[in-house]
Simulated assay, not measured.
Amino acid sequence: MNASLSPQMSASVLLPLFIAMVAGAAVPFQAGSNAALGRTLGHPLWATVASLLVSLIVVVPVLVGMRAGWPNLAAAARGPWWLWIGGVAGVAYMTAALVLTPRLGAASFIVCVIAGQVVASLIIDHFGLMGLMTKPVNLTRVAGVALIVAGMLVVQWGTKAAATSAAAARAVGT
């Protein structure tokens, strides 16, 4: 951390990073609980529906408590088409998590999700997509993304090696 930062400034920088980490830490729990819910309900898509309904039940009282007012649907309807893909992306992510987390394990699934998020984010930044400020790709940023993708591959390799070792131990024990 830069020693020249004042305590207030460092807190203003560190608090959002901490909150983002806590939000990120919730994701594997979401994936695991939704996968179990999908098994319990009999189909992964029912768990997606249930998760979205629970989200709605939680967020509406928060909006009311914050006195957020009504959404400006007319302005949103006049906006670009991509304003609405968040819901589709959420369903795609949730359904993938429901199906793949039991097969891959939480760590393997989440590291793949993170790698995909970072690659897509680099593209979004480079082209300034979705109304975001353009942040061109450079060698340093590509190297960082390559390290994350390499980390994903290492986690996958480690998971496969652990599974092979466990299978060998079971075979010896029988």
Rank of each mutant, 00 (worst) to 15 (best):
A3G: 11
A3R: 06
S4C: 13
L5T: 07
A11E: 15
S12I: 09
V13R: 01
V13F: 04
L14H: 02
L14K: 01
L14D: 11
L14M: 13
L14E: 03
L15N: 02
L15F: 05
P16R: 01
L17D: 03
I19A: 06
M21Y: 07
M21Q: 13
V22G: 10
A23P: 07
A23R: 15
A23W: 11
P28T: 04
P28C: 09
P28M: 09
G32S: 11
A35V: 14
A35C: 06
R39L: 06
L41Y: 12
P44K: 07
P44H: 10
L45M: 13
L45Q: 08
T48P: 06
T48D: 11
T48L: 15
V49I: 10
V49L: 10
A50R: 07
A50L: 09
A50W: 10
V54Y: 01
V54I: 03
S55W: 13
I57W: 14
I57M: 09
V58S: 00
V59N: 08
V59H: 05
V60D: 09
V62N: 03
G65T: 09
M66R: 07
M66I: 13
R67H: 01
W70D: 06
P71G: 14
P71F: 14
N72E: 01
L73E: 04
A76M: 08
G79S: 08
L83W: 11
W84D: 08
I85H: 11
G87Y: 07
A92L: 04
A92Y: 11
T95F: 09
V99S: 12
R103N: 08
L104A: 14
A106C: 14
A107I: 05
A107E: 06
A107G: 02
V111S: 02
C112G: 12
C112T: 15
C112E: 14
A115I: 11
G116N: 10
Q117A: 12
Q117R: 05
V119H: 01
A120N: 03
S121E: 03
L122M: 03
I124S: 12
D125A: 01
H126A: 03
G131L: 06
P136M: 13
V137A: 02
V137R: 01
R141C: 07
V142L: 00
V142S: 01
A143E: 00
A143F: 00
G144H: 01
V145Q: 00
A146E: 00
L147D: 00
I148D: 00
V149R: 00
V154E: 04
V154H: 02
A161Y: 05
A163G: 09
T164H: 14
S165N: 11
A166Q: 07
A166I: 10
A169H: 04
A169Q: 12
R170Q: 14
G173K: 12
